[in-house]
Amino acid sequence: MRPFDYQRADGLTHAGQLADADEAAYIAGGTNLLDLMKLQVETPRRLVDINKVGMREIEQTDDGGLRIGALATNTATASHDLVRRNYPVLARAILAGATQQLRNRATTGGNLCQRTRCYYFTNIDQPCNKREPGSGCGAIQGIARLHAILGTSSQCIATYPGDMAVALSALDAKVEIASESGERTVPVRDFHCLPGDTPWRDNVLEAGEIITSVVLPPPVAGRQSYRKVRERSSYAFALVSIASIVEMEGDMIARADLAFGGVAHIPWHDERLSNLLVGQAPDRKLFDKAADLLLEDAQGYGENDFKIPLARRTLHAVLSEATGVDQ
């Protein structure tokens, strides 16, 4: 690990001041940042420890939603009564990720900002446009089993690896962000970036900006689930995952909020799917149409070609289960 200067922030303003330095990084649980610092993938000159800043609360908002502090641990969130009762898709997504030891340290903010698990990104001897702009992408034409099928670019085909944010996208949660110049709110659906020509950019955070919380809208009716398909049944990143909130009204679909993990550089949300599904009677033909729409522009890179049929089948399974249609 490269040497760095360690500073502990005692409040939000202090954190901002400390981070106003060349190559400073916030550290929360440290489970992603320290991992990458040991590999010299991340080489911050200063670490700003935000664990004493507060922002650990999970509390109801005035409109009946829920505000989850950026420093609330994944364990605190997944075991919180209101999350378990009203946002089971979120509890399930968190519990499907990592291990209890990691979730005990991992935080809301750190989880949102976790970096890709692309093998070329984490190996400094390999070319990677995300880690070293202009060095090329090792994964295109290389080992790409974990990689994206949607929204890729000629520069980068990495996936966002997290589970929690996929549920937050289905729930249409908002990210609250602060900096020395003020505060802003960004929908989770707009928080992560597609790789495009700037693959080094994972999300919309500017230097020094800090996530203060995530806000969930008031609970909605319907059936919530998180389905994660992975190489083994525990402790593995998603190949494909789907967070879903589906409500039926009689024989018709009244709500279908879906988000997909493991398929893109961002938790993937496609509004067109809701538009297609809502107001329709569910059947296999309709699910096929939804999959066609989702995968219209999907592209495989050899090793990950299997993700295209896998995403289709997973979508079928999720929609059949949620609507009660026999597969």
């Binding site: 360690y6 550290i27 320290l34 030891q101 990691l102 005990n104 340290r105």
Partner: peptide, 13 residues
């Protein structure tokens, strides 16, 4: 009282 991976944490924290 909480279990964690001590390798992914700094003593100074």
């Amino acid at each position: 009282g909480m279990r964690i991976n001590s390798c992914l944490s700094l003593a100074v924290m």
